[in-house]
């Protein structure tokens, strides 16, 4: 289900965390859905089970998954986290675009105009 890049410099543990978060945020993995067991992932990817366990623990700490002892790991109700993550992503994107605009000589007022326009559009939709 997840693909890792063993040649990448990014630690496997981080890759697992990011990939699973991504699947949860994109809602490929739905709320209360069971995650693949440590054994299944370990066998499928030939990854040290301790590394997978550690990644799952970290995901649990961050609130993305919860554990039922003896049953496995499940996707937590993460609507709120997802929204926060998405907002964070959008902010990053806007910042990048604004930077580009600034380099091309756009002025502060021009950005504000775009913002006003967008707000109007949204209100018009209501």
């Amino acid at each position: 289900m997840i693909e890792l890049d063993l040649r990448s410099r990014i630690p496997i543990y981080e890759q697992i965390i990011e990939k699973i978060k991504d699947l949860i945020i994109k809602e490929v993995l739905k709320e209360d859905e069971q995650l693949p067991s440590v054994r299944a992932l370990s066998t499928e990817l030939t990854i040290n089970p301790n590394t997978i366990q550690k990644a799952y623990r970290e995901l649990e700490r961050q609130g993305y998954i919860y554990t039922i002892p003896g049953k496995g790991n499940f996707v937590a109700p993460v609507k709120k986290i997802i929204n926060e993550e998405k907002v964070k992503e959008i902010k990053e994107e806007i910042k990048k675009k604004v930077m580009e605009g600034l380099y091309l000589g756009m002025k502060r007022q021009e950005f504000i105009d775009i913002l006003d326009e967008a707000v109007k559009l949204k209100e018009g939709l209501k």
Binding site: V38, R39, S42, T43, T46, I47, N48, P49, N50
Partner: peptide, 13 residues
């Protein structure tokens, strides 16, 4: 190598 790793990981788990 892959096979041996898999077997060892299984034993670890």
């Amino acid at each position: 190598r892959q096979k041996v790793k898999k077997i060892i990981f299984e034993e670890v788990l």
